[in-house]
Simulated scan of single mutants.
Amino acid sequence: MAAEQSMELHEAYPMTGGDGLYSYVNNSSGQKAVIDSAKELVKRAIVEKLDKEILCSFKTFRIADLGCSVGPNTYFAVQNILEALESKYQQCHQIPEFQVFYSDHSANDFNLLFTSLPQNRNYYAAGVPGSFYGRLFPEASLHFVHCSYAIQWLSGAPKELMDKSSPAWNKSRIHYANSGDEVVRAYKAQYHKDIEQFLQARAQEIVCGGLMVLIFPGVPNGTHHSQSLPSMILELLGSCLMDMARKGIVSEEKVDTLNIPIYGMSPQELKEAVEGNGRFSIEIMEDLPLMIHDHAVSGGQSKIDTQAFVCHMRAGLEGLFKNHFGERILDVLFESYRNKIEENSSIFMSGKAVNSFVLLKRKLSTSKLAS
Rank of each mutant, 00 (worst) to 15 (best):
L55I: 11
M212V: 03
F348R: 13
L333M: 05
I151D: 08
K368H: 14
T257M: 11
Y89R: 02
V128L: 04
E318N: 06
V145Y: 02
S298I: 15
D36V: 14
Y89I: 00
H312K: 12
R279W: 12
L214P: 05
S371I: 10
V70T: 13
Q79S: 06
N170W: 00
H10K: 13
N323I: 06
K361M: 09
Q197N: 15
G180T: 05
V145S: 01
D287N: 13
K59Q: 14
N344G: 09
G130S: 00
I260N: 05
E8R: 10
A45F: 02
S350D: 10
E86Y: 11
P289S: 10
L50M: 13
A157Q: 02
R246G: 15
H93K: 13
I195L: 08
Y24Q: 03
I249W: 04
L360Q: 02
P129I: 00
I151V: 15
E182K: 14
A168K: 01
A157W: 00
A315F: 05
F321N: 04
G209D: 03
N221V: 08
S165Q: 12
H175V: 07
L211N: 07
L320G: 05
D305H: 09
R202M: 09
V354G: 02
F137W: 02
A33L: 12
A45K: 04
I284R: 02
P129M: 00
N344P: 07
H146I: 04
